[in-house]
Amino acid sequence: MNIRLLTLRRTKQVFTVTFFWLPISFFSLLLIWNTIPYFNFSKDFSFIQERAVLFLQPIYNWSFYIHIFAGMFCIGTALLQFSSYLLKKRKKIHVWSGRVYVMVVLLLGAPTGLYMSFFAKGGFAERGLFMFMAISWFFFTLKGFTTILNKHVLAHKIWMMRSYAMALTAVTFRVYYIILYLYDVPLTLNYEMSLWMSVVGNLMVAEYLIYRKSKAYLTTFTT
């Protein structure tokens, strides 16, 4: 192969790792790290105290703990899924972490998220957005799971990218929230803006990456 092409490809890989996967990994691990203290089941957290009325309900209380437990595993295992090295050399790791991801999302994360979305912070639109997130997260993961069972690898990749985009809203929401906070945006507006930006932004990025990935495949339909 042309040496220039190889160099270009290598540079692209380095840039992708540095500016995409490294921040995502860092913030994902930070989110997991900050979730761990919640499992002393103390109510002495400002997040819980703000929702003290909701946490009096046992269903909401357990939904919350199940949801964050599922979220930790989901975000942790998803980091391994997009490694081409693991996919080629250690396929067992990909398969098992994928199973954990799918089961955690379908059985724990999405149902509890859907229940809690009815009581989400914000207005009617934000509650609707949380419901959309929970349902779409469930649907994308389910489609990713069924496509790989049918050995349709490209479709599996596409649906899993969408599923991961939904899972990653937990991370990007906090990034946007902190950035807007530093720019002195009022807290309520900041919350709503960060929420919409994270969901819509993640979906757009995912669709762009899907388009790039499957461009060659899509051209087969036109020609």
């Binding site: 089961m103 379908l106 059985l107 149902p111 509890t112 859907l114 229940y115 469930f138």
Partner: peptide
């Protein structure tokens, strides 16, 4: 597994709506 997941989602939606 799939039907269990769908059932859980349905249960969550109904419970959430009722509450």
């Amino acid at each position: 597994v799939l039907y269990t997941c769908i059932g859980l989602m349905g249960a969550a939606a109904i419970t959430g709506f009722v509450d």
